[in-house]
Write a protein that binds this DNA or RNA. Sequence first.
DNA 1: TAATAGTCTAGTTAATTAGTAGGTTTTTAA
DNA 2: TTAAAAACCTACTAATTAACTAGACTATTA
Lengths: 141, 141
Amino acid sequence: MLSKKTKYGLKALTYMAKKESKKPVLISEIAEEENISKKFLEIILLQLKNSGFLGSKKGKGGGYYLIREPEKITVASLIRVLEGPIAMLPCVSLNFYEKCDDCKNEETCSLSKLMIEVRDSTLKILENKSLADLTNSTMSL
Amino acid sequence: MLSKKTKYGLKALTYMAKKESKKPVLISEIAEEENISKKFLEIILLQLKNSGFLGSKKGKGGGYYLIREPEKITVASLIRVLEGPIAMLPCVSLNFYEKCDDCKNEETCSLSKLMIEVRDSTLKILENKSLADLTNSTMSL
DNA sequence: TAATAGTCTAGTTAATTAGTAGGTTTTTAA
DNA sequence: TTAAAAACCTACTAATTAACTAGACTATTA
């Protein structure tokens, strides 16, 4: 399951991507429109800024804005920043690999092959879906 | 990510399914072979018993045994019992559905369609993979 | 220079995870 | 019939994470 942080982050970015104008968007506006705690959203957007997805401007007329084009931002990359691993087990994660301390040898582990299969089918979707895809509600399945 | 409980449970059941004889298997044997804390494994196997996957026998010569044939037990059903929802969001879970309290309407939620897609591709794998599939290490991908 | 709006520090509360300790009950075999 | 075996039950615990909250600080702009 995705944490609320990840969910809120994705919703906030989608909200920003939907806006035509390039003007900075207020945290408070997003918080209100998407029913997210403003203080919590502050933390999330700051993290997305520090990860290179967002830029910000302080003071009046300030806010957050997308640095890259929505088409160039995959959902997979956002989940990795907000949530961490996408795989179901650390030992089959591509970006957050961790060795199993209980497995005798990973090659013969009964679970790892299955979990690699699940990981790949999930990545096939998430790597090919961009923020731009989230903005149009008539997204093809 | 799957919890260790789920991972241990799947590994323990796989270990049991691998055995040819129908004789009960000791918790302590599984714990030792799979490097799982025995006390923790007790809890897990008891839960699998209460969920109808395992039977047990007390006393000497006792232990746990599979009630159904490994071919008839899907990995999806095991994960649901041990872990809970397979979906990435409660609002797209088939077996553990929960309404989003922040979404204005679920139909137009940008995330839900994507998460349904991920859910379905994961289920396609996990519903069609049985305990028996986990026992042969030459499982086809 | 005052209002605006992001940033930083430092918490809190509740839930979950991953166990541990130790005793009880049931069954089997000597 | 009794002792050992092995599951079962009750009740903790420690560590981590999730989901926030409060309040002060800093930069910008009208």
